[in-house]
Structure formats: C-alpha cells, structure tokens
C-alpha cells in the first residue's frame, strides 16, 4: 500500500501535467516568437487586459454571490489593497473575513 502522502490520483496527475504543458508552452514560445509578435492597437490592449480580467473573473463570484460576510470582507480588502502592500492586504482580508463570518454566521 502506498503511503497517503505519496498517493497519486490519475486525474489529478493528468490535470497537473496538462497545466504544466500549457505553462511551459507559453514560456518557451516567446523564444520562437521573439521579434515576430507585433501586437498593435486594439489587439495589444486586449492582450494587456488578460491578467486583470482573468484574476477578477476568478474572485468575483466569491465577493458578489457567496454571502454577506464575503462581500463585506471583500470591500474592506479592496480598500486595503489601494493603501497597503500585498502582505498587509492579505492580513486585512483574512482578519476581516473571520470577523465578518462570526457576525453573519
């Protein structure tokens, strides 16, 4: 029997390998694209918008469609993010969600 710490699930491994291939593919393709990729205008703006658009899409349902505790904590965290470094924002988020969950149950 395999120890629990070393267990490997087939689907989990497949997902990790798929994500690893995509990540490496994107990293190495710049080497081959260098000098050939010439994004301009609208395409460039759309490409540049990818990181904030994706990060926002991941967290929005937790903030706006989960419960009042998450919404309140989210508002405080957004406020913190405009004023504090990343580590401070994390601290505010964690503390405010624990308190908000205690209040809203």
């Amino acid at each position: 029997m395999t120890a629990a710490w070393a267990s490997l699930n087939g689907m989990t491994l497949l997902a990790i390998l798929a994500m690893a291939s995509i990540s490496y593919g994107l990293r190495i393709s710049g080497v081959f694209l260098a000098g050939r990729l010439n994004l301009k205008g609208r395409m460039r703006a759309a490409f540049d918008a990818i990181p904030p658009a994706v990060l926002t899409a991941v967290v929005a349902p937790t903030l706006f469609a989960t419960g009042p505790a998450e919404t309140v904590a989210g508002a405080l965290t957004i406020l913190a993010a405009t004023r504090l470094p990343l580590i401070g924002t994390i601290a505010v988020g964690v503390v405010s969600v624990v308190l908000a969950r205690a209040v809203f149950g």
Partner: peptide, 12 residues
C-alpha cells in the same frame, strides 16, 4: 480568503 485577498492585491 487569503487567496481572494492576494488576487485583490495583484489586481490593484
């Protein structure tokens, strides 16, 4: 929620 806070910080 630390995940959410990290993401909010990165977005900001």
């Amino acid at each position: 929620f630390a995940f959410i806070a990290i993401f909010i910080g990165l977005i900001a």
